[in-house]
Amino acid sequence: MRSASSALSRPLANAFLAGAVLVALLPLLLVVINAFKPHAAVVANPLSLPASLGPDNFVRAWSGGKFSIAIVNSLLLSGTTVMVTLACASLAAFALARRKIAGWQFITVYFLCATTVPIQLFLFPLYFIYAKLGILGNFAGTALILSAINLPISIFLLRAYVLSIPQELDDAAFMDGATPFQTFRHVILPLMRPGLITVAIIVFLNSWNEFLITSTFQKGRDNITMTLGYLSMNGTYATDQGALMAGAFILIAPVIVLFLVLQRFFISGMTAGAVKG
């Protein structure tokens, strides 16, 4: 009975998965093939393969998206966000996992609530505070916001790693004369390295891709990020679809490579909060 039904369902299942793969990849494949085609060829048939693999579209896209400025800003913004988040979250994760401070329960619940707090709940006053302080467009200021948003989830990810490190190691380090900071630096931090890598990747991608905060706070020509630079091409390059697709290619190719290389960390971090294991 079983073999009969599975003989029937197996092709259906394969068809579904194949369809899912096609749906996931088709728009990205269209980006790749049209990034090398002139506008007329795109309009004529977006499915046709490019006649040649010239870099013309990429050159126009690079200047059109102001990517020379944007890539520096994006790296500064995302890099700073990762550093600030890792520093704050790893220390807090250690303290919260060890439960030595009064009120650790209260602080843990606070960060738990913060994991789902909507950006809109603090966005508007924060914008006008930043405006008043004159730090709109300042990548460090924006990085602090992105760090604050990424903090709670990072803390809980890293906290799970600290919990897997036996308390006796802290005791041993204490017996060895280490201060709690030395314990953190020499024992805890090296042992949560896979967690740090996971958090770094997730936070980096989050801030590289982020739209609401970045578009609101990184105002001004000199402050644009990769995504904002590309977005600025939207209207003006409607008649140069080849360049638009080349821009998309420039934007997504590094992310895809990064993701494929480090997907193990990425997937473990993404599913950690949602799946008990």
Binding site: P27, L28, V31, L251, I252, V255
Partner: peptide
């Protein structure tokens, strides 16, 4: 392999995804 493919759109920025769909789809 399936997981990696299915996740690709998720790891890309909304800006890129939105512009891709708007323009080429």
């Amino acid at each position: 392999a399936f997981q990696a493919i299915f996740l690709l759109p998720y790891v890309l920025s909304p800006v890129a995804n939105a512009m891709i769909w708007q323009n080429i789809i």
